[in-house]
Amino acid sequence: MTSQPYPHREIDGDVYVSPRHLASSTFTGDPALAPLLDLDWDLRHDEDGNVFVSAPDRGVRLGYLPEGTDDGLWRITAYADPFDPPAWGVCFNNNAPTEFVTALTTALAAAYQQGPDAYLARPQAGTDERDPLLAIVPLLKQGWNFDRPRPDVFAIRAPDHLAVMEYTAGNLHPGAELTTRTARWHLWAGTSIDHPLWYATASTNTPLALLTALTQSVADPTPLLRWRQVTSSYHKGMAQLTPIPAPVPKRPTPLDVHRAVGLRRPAALPTANVPRWSTTSQSAAPTPRR
């Protein structure tokens, strides 16, 4: 899809956002929850509006936490044993594009149906099928470039330099991977790692299938649909916004004109039989606006 950038002050209503890593959240969790709820996972919520979803065997848990203690809106963890620490964990903050979360939960639902060997499958460096660095292949195919921001970090950066996926080498603290941004995988967008537009993290043992589903969604060149007024992430000079053109009115055909003329009431008929609006008439209910 090709388009020209528009001045942001002139844009209103629904827009297409490109590149999609600058689209921010849709601020509704339903699309990302749906793949798991379709498998009849248990859904609960607390009085603050936080939502908790658990697999039937309690092997995977998801928290949608709009009233959590930090900006980690989505937290997903998997367990080899319900009483063990998480085998892996993924976090998306509150501004992460919902489509990226949905891509991961869709892959998670497919892996769960295959069993623990799939949703607990650890990546293995140096293998042909489970090397963790295979997760960056979708990004490489879209022109992302390698970078080395720090000695222990390998990164791949978007062509516009406004999104980065980092892989940290060496040993990491398992607890820190689950509760901070110091994780094996760190995906973020914006101009500053300290103040990103949004971020996502994935711990060391996150299955390759889930990582790849995420990077495929990020790399997809298709713009994302957003409502312009409800987001603050479309910074001038960064995202390209394309207004959705208004539908072109259909031109009446000769047959339409003929039917319209044929249905008109002759002027000679008495007007007493023609209903008219009066102060006692009930007006139609207004059509609700978004």
Score class of each variant (00 low, 15 high):
Y234R: 12
D220M: 04
A200S: 07
T222D: 09
R228Y: 14
L210I: 01
G237F: 06
A239F: 11
P221S: 15
H235K: 10
L224H: 13
T204I: 08
T222L: 10
I244Y: 13
S232F: 11
R226N: 10
S233D: 09
I244T: 15
T222N: 07
L224A: 07
Q240M: 05
Q229N: 08
A200W: 05
L211F: 00
S232I: 11
A209L: 01
P243V: 15
I244R: 12
Y199Q: 13
A209G: 08
P221K: 03
A213E: 00
T206H: 01
V230N: 07
K236C: 02
V218N: 01
A200L: 04
L208T: 00
R228K: 14
V230M: 13
R228D: 08
L210E: 12
P207I: 08
K236A: 06
A209T: 03
R226Y: 11
N205H: 10
L210Q: 02
L210T: 03
M238C: 02
A202S: 11
S217L: 01
L224W: 13
T231A: 12
L208Q: 05
S203C: 05
T204A: 13
T212H: 01
P243S: 13
R228N: 15
A239W: 03
V218M: 12
T206G: 04
L224R: 04
L211E: 00
M238T: 05
G237R: 03
L214V: 11
A209I: 06
V230T: 14
V230P: 07
T206L: 10
A209M: 09
T212Y: 10
R226L: 10
P223S: 07
G237K: 04
T242S: 14
R226H: 09
P221I: 04
R228Q: 08
R228P: 03
T206R: 02
V218P: 01
S232T: 05
L241N: 04
T242Y: 07
S233G: 08
T242Q: 14
L210P: 03
P243A: 15
H235W: 05
A239K: 04
S203P: 13
T201N: 04
S203V: 13
